[in-house]
Design a binder for these strands. Structure first.
Length: 481
DNA sequence: TTAGGGTTAGAA
DNA sequence: TTCTAACCCTAA
């Protein structure tokens, strides 16, 4: 918790602290909201952990917020002028120059306007002379020589000449005192504020949300393609699914899979979603699609399609023959159509061995229980494939379902006296330098832990990586730092 | 969705 | 055989 943190986060522990980068995103978002008052904004500024130095975008947002506060109080002061100057250094914009000129004039002329009764005319003149010196002879002169020269406009030069002339011309000073310079400055700042907010566009969080929505649209388009593919081979896939029904396995999931595929309404790929949806109404069912799972699914389809795998064809015997490490398993058919259809023949390997024969012979619809989805498979055998499994990182259960269907197919095609269990494992892919560099930069920009966001921002580069892969890789990369 | 511990493949 | 990067599992 940073020093000065307020009651906003009274019970936050170290582990619960917001990452400073995230804090900056959140603060930027909140500061741009008109319904977040100045008091709350100030409290947030103190409470949220922020990077040091502040990111330019957040600094600009803070300055805009300060200008907005001045506007709301109808206050035009040297602080306003300073805010505009800083803003220009952080985020140069043509809209700043008119506001800067108008505020500079108001700050100079203000002492000449309606001097308090207690002040003499000479005091007002003295303040005016001082302002001309500070603002025009020092600040504006510095601007003309500095990197903020963009603030120096013809109007500013003309105003400077007029102010300097007023120093030696009492009549001009009197005329300046009667001008509506304050109103002109407020209008100019308001216009500047509006234009700057437009130029800054949405906040980072809004932009990220928008990117996610756009990704979703892409997924939706691709969903139609996948849906067609599934219909094309559903007779094959569902055939093996039906075998599972016959022996009493996972009927609810199977029914759902069938209804969703046949109905063409949508595809439920997330096991947990399927189970949750059991309790929903029919109207709600079938339209809930896990877009992340779908994204992986589509990637899988496109990967294999690009490898000239024909999804409309039934894989031929031998086309996807596994390579069992155990000689006694050589020659046995272990693959399953619905699973193997997603596998690349040149890349996959399979290892299998027998389980207790009694286990297989005792397969019974009434007694066979669905294994705990959380149980680790101690007798696992590995099966590598080329791409990210359909639900890897999304629904670990689905992989086990595929294992299950594999074994079902194995039993039905060979012998019920034995069953096989498979653990699917992707082929190892070494990270290339582009992936590493992209990850490094993405973490610097978005912060470690935002793996989904990072993957979403670089879909092409990380197309074969999951969010978990990014996390693991970053762990490896930082392990030796 | 993410963190962190466990497992495995492949290089040294 | 050892080590490490990549991958997987599980809990929160």
């Amino acid at each position: 918790m940073p020093q000065g943190s307020s009651s906003l986060l009274p019970h936050a522990t170290k582990d619960e602290m917001v990452d400073p980068v995230v804090g900056a995103w959140v603060l930027e978002f909140l500061l741009r909201r008109p319904d977040v008052g100045d008091a709350l904004a100030g409290e947030l500024l103190l409470a949220l952990p922020l990077p040091s130095p502040l990111p330019p975008r957040l600094s600009a947002t803070l300055l805009l917020r300060r200008l907005a506060a001045d506007l709301s109080r109808r206050s035009v002061s040297p602080r306003t002028l300073h805010s505009l100057d800083l803003l220009h250094r952080i985020r140069p914009s043509p809209s700043l120059a008119p506001a800067f000129t108008a505020v500079a004039v108001e700050c100079t002329v203000a002492p000449l306007r309606l001097p308090p009764l207690s002040s003499s005319e000479s005091d007002a003149d003295a303040e005016f002379f001082d302002a001309v010196n500070r603002i025009w002879n020092c600040l504006v002169a510095d601007l003309e020589r500095s990197e903020a020269a963009g603030l120096v406009s013809c109007a500013l030069r003309e105003a400077r000449m007029e102010m300097e002339a007023a120093v030696v011309d009492p009549a001009l000073r009197a005329e300046l005192g009667r001008r509506e310079t304050k109103e002109a400055a407020l209008v100019a700042v308001r216009v500047c504020l509006e234009e700057m907010e437009k130029e800054m566009g949405p906040t980072f969080l809004e932009a990220a949300a928008d990117a996610i929505v756009r990704c979703d649209c892409e997924t939706h388009r691709s969903l139609v393609v996948l849906s067609d593919k599934l219909r094309a081979f559903r007779s094959i896939g569902l055939e093996s699914v039906e075998r599972g029904v016959e022996i009493g396995h996972l009927p609810s999931k199977i029914d759902r899979a069938r209804s969703t595929v046949e109905g063409g309404e949508g595809i439920k790929l997330n096991d947990r979603n399927i189970e949750k949806d059991q309790m929903r109404t029919d109207q709600e069912q079938g339209y809930s699609v896990d877009k992340n799972a779908m994204s992986c699914e589509l990637q899988e389809v496109s990967d294999h399609k690009s490898c000239d795998n024909n999804y409309d064809d039934v894989p031929q015997s031998g086309q996807m023959d596994p390579v069992p490490p155990d000689p006694k398993d050589v020659g046995k058919k272990h693959h399953n159509i619905s699973t193997d259809t997603f596998l690349h023949p040149s890349e996959k390997r399979i290892r299998c061995s027998n389980l207790d024969a009694n286990t297989a012979t005792n397969l019974d619809a009434a007694t066979m229980q669905k294994p705990s989805l959380m149980d680790r498979n101690a007798t696992a055998h590995t099966f590598e494939w080329d791409s990210i499994p359909t639900h890897y990182g999304k629904s670990p259960n689905m992989k086990k379902e595929m294992d299950y269907f594999s074994s079902m197919n194995s039993k039905s095609s060979s012998s019920l006296n034995e069953t096989k269990e498979y653990v699917l494992r992707r082929r190892k892919r070494k990270w290339n330098s582009l992936e590493e560099e992209t990850l490094r930069k993405a973490v610097a920009r978005y912060g470690a832990g935002n793996w989904k966001l990072i993957k979403g921002c670089h879909p092409e580069i990380f197309e074969r990586r999951t969010e978990v892969d990014l996390k693991d890789k970053w762990r490896n990369m930082t392990r030796h730092m």
